[in-house]
């Protein structure tokens, strides 16, 4: 499989603190999960990949330009209805009002919240907002979807539900790069796992191997402690 994303000696230093350090890897699978403890640099790495942060060293290389979208760890909503928030991204792409509405509503239905369409997005609960954010990203029909702990503030039922939706999105051909603290979820969703600690990639392994026989002792400890 040819890699669709390459990181070359990627580094990010902010105020003298090394947040990401010398990360070189190739992403070629459809579903890549980034694991690691709090503060490991997972969110930062996603931002670098998505182009929101400019690396202070190295390169993010897209062999072929792919349409990307991202769901952030903390959802940010405009002062508008849930539907209008989803429509906004479509509007930026010049999609006419009628089609926009239909697609936005389809996306909201997809995440199981069609009844929230007319609700003010900022008044929705944290979990609801996270799912609206997923709908907003999915509505854009991205070729690559970055997901930063998309189920972190969801109840177990919604979490499984969203996990299933992400699986379907991947099934339909969208490439997924995602972080999570839920190891069961990682096991169920991932093709491969990238394990990060203190801004460094300690391993990049197919999922079965990662959970069966992690290569580093750090990952071994992490798996044991998180379980």
């Amino acid at each position: 499989m040819a890699p669709w994303l390459r990181l070359e000696a990627l580094g990010l230093t902010e105020n003298g603190v090394r947040i990401v350090e010398d990360v070189s890897l190739k992403v070629s699978h459809g579903r890549t999960l980034i694991l690691g403890p709090n503060g490991a640099g997972k969110s930062t790495l996603l931002r670098l990949m998505h182009g929101l942060l400019r690396p202070s060293a190295g390169h993010v290389v897209w062999p072929r330009a792919l349409m990307q979208a991202m769901v952030f760890q903390r959802p940010v909503m405009l002062r508008a209805t849930a539907l209008a928030n989803i429509e906004y991204g479509l509007k930026l792409r010049g999609i006419p009002a009628e089609a926009r509405r239909r697609q936005a509503l389809a996306a909201l239905t997809r995440v199981g919240l069609p009844e929230l369409a007319a609700r003010q997005a900022r008044r929705c609960s944290g979990g609801e907002q996270q799912r609206i954010a997923l709908a907003r990203a999915w509505a854009l029909a991205p070729q690559v979807l970055f997901l930063d702990e998309p189920t972190a503030s969801l109840d177990p039922h919604s979490s499984r539900e969203v996990e299933r939706i992400i699986g379907e999105i991947a099934e339909a051909g969208t490439k997924i790069v995602m972080t999570t603290h839920n190891l069961g979820q990682a096991r169920r969703l991932a093709d491969e796992v990238i394990y990060l600690e203190e801004g460094r990639v300690l391993e990049q392994t197919p999922v079965d191997e990662f959970f069966r026989r992690p290569r580093t002792s750090a990952a071994t400890t992490f798996i044991r402690d998180e379980r």
Binding site: L52, A69, M70, Y88
Partner: peptide
């Protein structure tokens, strides 16, 4: 500060973001 990353991720140009945020902060 709050919306920058989200707006850039969605593909809003800076002038467009300015317009969106003016309305958002009405």
């Amino acid at each position: 500060r709050e919306h920058r990353e989200q707006l850039r991720s969605l593909g809003a140009s800076r002038p467009r973001a300015a317009r969106t945020l003016l309305w958002n902060a009405r």
